[in-house]
Design a protein around this nucleic acid. Structure first.
Lengths: 132, 132
DNA sequence: AATAAATTGATAATAATTACTAATTTTACT
DNA sequence: AGTAAAATTAGTAATTATTATCAATTTATT
């Protein structure tokens, strides 16, 4: 068999795969510690990097001060809320999908990351509240 | 008059505007020091942030370990070489431009950053060399 | 079971960025 | 021009994110 496995790596993956929040390494570490208090921060960093290398996770492109990860490795985009900084998935229209694919193909690129900025639902609601 | 000016800010802008390399703060600092040896690294960081805030520069979206800046603020994309890490401008086809604009508009987003990965000309040439 | 290879926890080291502060520069207002 | 207020600076300390190191443990390969 050729699977390199460790309980820590699978835990890191499970934590990442079970959230929709595009967390940082720090956040993943906190969650991992709930079920495996002894897990080291370095191990979380190492395994997030390993998951990205092996294609089981991606790093979200953006202008963050720290890396954000995502276990959904099928093609999709992201939206960063300019108010609270939250990262959400953003699923492209067929039209955009095709245009992106075509651009990458025709130029011999390997891949791409597309991140929108906007205001998330939660922050939009709060803005409404403030106007009342 | 309402322009807040400082020689340092203009120098930071000039250095950024006169390169095509999408540099880091560190790189900009080195270049600035050539003509103004006393300029502080903190000042470069502060002014790059100020330029972004005021719309005279943008921060390139990506998965870098440090921020990369660009004084070309009109809509265009980037390509990061997966071999050497160099960042290049990538100008979208009309088709892609429109699809991106439409997606942002129709969803009420504010903006976006699109970064491709690929292999730059220089590294492609080197790969050729290695095959001979 | 024995050995080699990979991974871990703990922590030191490094890199990037921000915070702080007294001094200087710039602006706004006489 | 003169001066007080506001903004900005250089220098450096502090903070944050990430990587490197290494002995100990776990897993894979005979």
């Amino acid at each position: 068999m050729k699977t390199n496995y460790s309980a820590q790596r699978e835990l890191v993956y499970d934590v990442l795969a079970s959230t929709v929040t595009h967390p940082t390494a720090e956040w993943v570490w906190e969650r991992c510690r709930e079920s495996m208090p002894s897990i080291s921060k370095a191990t979380v960093y190492r395994n997030l990097a390993a998951l990205v290398r092996s294609g089981r996770a991606i790093e979200v492109v953006g202008t963050f001060g720290s890396s954000h990860y995502d276990a959904r490795v099928y093609p999709h985009n992201h939206m960063v809320c300019s108010v609270c900084g939250a990262v959400e998935d953003s699923f492209p229209s067929k039209e955009l999908s095709l245009a992106l694919e075509h651009e990458a193909q025709s130029r011999g690129y390997i891949g791409y990351g597309l991140t929108f900025t906007g205001v998330c639902e939660k922050c939009r609601a709060k803005q409404q509240d403030n106007l009342r």
